[in-house]
Amino acid sequence: MRMPLCSIALGSILMISALVPSNAGQEMGESNFFTTSDGVRIHYLEKGKGETLVFVPGILFPAEIWEKQIERFSKEYRVVAMDPRSHGRSERPTEGHTQSRRGRDIGELIDHVSDKPVVAIGWSLGVLEILTFAKENGTDKFKSLVLVDMFLGFDEKLGTPHPFGNAWIGWMKGLQTDRRKWISDWSRAFHRREHPEEYFERMEEALMITPTNTAVTLLSNLMHIEERDFRPFIDTLDLPVLFVFSSST
């Protein structure tokens, strides 16, 4: 049986709508793209005028996670919130999910949006990607840094325990065997306070966008492959840095 063309079109629109956060759009900022030096289209939201603030989300999360900050700071600043590669509306390549490459994406986004140093605000994995970029390329692109709730270093040689213990083993397995449940548990575990169910549903749809093999790569890199001790580098920083931590983490 042939399906009417209008039904196919409506179905496609509904499918796409399900992948894009419901209140993304003009009120959250202008939706823009740029292409990285290795040919990946990166999406970012932009709103407001003035000094540039660049927001980088954590693992799998989209630019829209900064919704309340975009709303507040776009009244006084030019806010740029990025979807890192393979997050949100950015392209999802098979390569380049190292902290070094994703850090370069941040640096290239800054070059694209500003000819002056910016304030970079990173959360979780975004913190490590900003620090990786700064360590490898210098701090010239940054006026100041805001590092939100991420471990800044541990050294197994000194007996400092891994911050996630063996939890990552369950994460890696759950991610591959029951992605939808894993995403729901993962996003809800990050919050201590009540939020509307609509918020969680919107975030969970966005968190499903990253391909599973890429999500596994990102988690593997974070847990066991990438540099995880930035304390000596942080000691050398000569620009203003604000650390904001959750009391529970």
């Binding site: 996670i65 309340k68 201590r192 840095v241 650390f243 904001v244 931590f245 959750s246 009391s247």
Partner: peptide, 16 residues
């Protein structure tokens, strides 16, 4: 030039 702030009753998604 560094300042650290801890926010009470928040999870990892501290700014949310």
């Amino acid at each position: 030039k560094m300042k650290a702030v801890s926010l009470e009753n928040t999870g990892h998604g501290v700014f949310v």
